[in-house]
Computed example of a mutant assay.
Amino acid sequence: MASAQEFAGTGPVRDQHRFDQAALERWMARNVAGYAGPLTIDQFKGGQSNPTYRLRTPGRSYVLRRKPPGELIKGAHAVEREARVMAALGQAGFPVPRIHGLCTDDAVIGSWFFVMDLVEGRIFWDAGFSDVAAGERAAYMDAMNATLASLHTIDPAAIGLGDYGKAGGYVARQVARWSDQYRSDELAGRHPAMDQLVDWLPRHLPAADEVAITHGDFRADNLIFHLTEPRVLAVLDWELSTLGDPLADFAYHAMMFRMPPDILGGIAGRDLAAAGLPDEAAYVEAYCRRTGRPGIGNLDFYIAFNMFRFAAILHGIKGRVARGTASSADARAMGERFARVADLAWTQAQRLMA
């Protein structure tokens, strides 16, 4: 879906996302231990949902993530949830940036925000790790697999997240949530494949689901790796996290095997063996081994569901472009991928009907 050229790095703060820097500096001085200015601010090119900024001082660097200004869909852009889950997971030893503070006072910069450490490392923009030697790629893939499996084996209640979401019924709620969001966003328009999925998915839900902390958007470009080692230093972008079905969360990640390179940096169509990559079956087996399960019987359904969910996210981006609240400079191009992903999702569902 993304490329380093499209979304990596930073640039000047975009006009629609400017705020009172002096007010932020006063808040930092009061709330961030050891803060010492002066402060320089630029904006990350990515951050499709929540505008994200790099804050630099002479001594260290931080990241600020905020709700976008303007009219927002109810329940979206929940930066307070991101801050909460990362703080709890950090205390449990899971790789996330350190959270320094959350501000729920709109008067400071115009919307809620939180500040966390900037983790120095390497971000890969395709799931096949094309930027490393073929002989090293399997190790990077395995590091992703191990990190997600580790997340799904953490007891939510043990780290204070027992109330972070509802227990059970995750996929049904997600189908209903994204269906409602799709239907309610009239500015983004409708698409036949999406309408068919809205009807088909509720009638083919798994009989039961498990409960774990789920990331919701676990993919290569939401991870920061060590500069030279196949080791995950931090998992980013927790806006869609909740208590949910870990198999659905894993299937979203495993969609990379069925997505083309220009969508989510997928690896569909590649000669995996020649590229030094595991195939889908081996990747699924590694996750199942780490989480102590014999297999994933409903993997095809879960992938169809996740393609639908991702299409709904793109539909939301398309709507934000229409409303003028899109965070990323490349949001228009992303929103235009909506129909294509919806078609991919419906094709996956049709395979299950055969």
Rank of each mutant, 00 (worst) to 15 (best):
Y164I: 02
G165E: 09
G165R: 12
G168L: 07
G169F: 02
G169C: 09
V171T: 13
R173D: 06
R177K: 10
W178R: 07
Q181N: 02
Y182H: 07
R183Y: 07
S184F: 15
S184E: 09
S184I: 05
L187P: 06
A188C: 08
G189P: 09
G189E: 06
R190T: 14
H191F: 12
P192H: 08
A193K: 09
D195Y: 05
D195Q: 11
D199I: 13
P202Q: 03
R203S: 14
R203F: 13
H204P: 15
P206G: 06
P206E: 02
P206A: 03
A207E: 15
A208P: 00
D209P: 00
E210I: 08
E210D: 06
V211K: 03
A212S: 11
T214W: 04
T214V: 10
G216C: 06
R219F: 02
R219V: 05
I224A: 06
F225R: 01
L227N: 09
P230E: 01
V235N: 12
L236R: 02
D237W: 00
D237T: 11
D237S: 06
D237Q: 07
W238N: 12
L240S: 08
S241K: 10
T242H: 03
G244A: 12
D245Q: 05
D245A: 09
P246W: 00
A248M: 04
A248N: 08
F250D: 00
F250M: 08
A251V: 13
Y252L: 09
F257D: 02
R258C: 06
R258N: 12
D262Y: 14
I263R: 00
G265N: 09
G266D: 14
I267F: 11
I267P: 00
I267H: 10
I267T: 13
A268S: 14
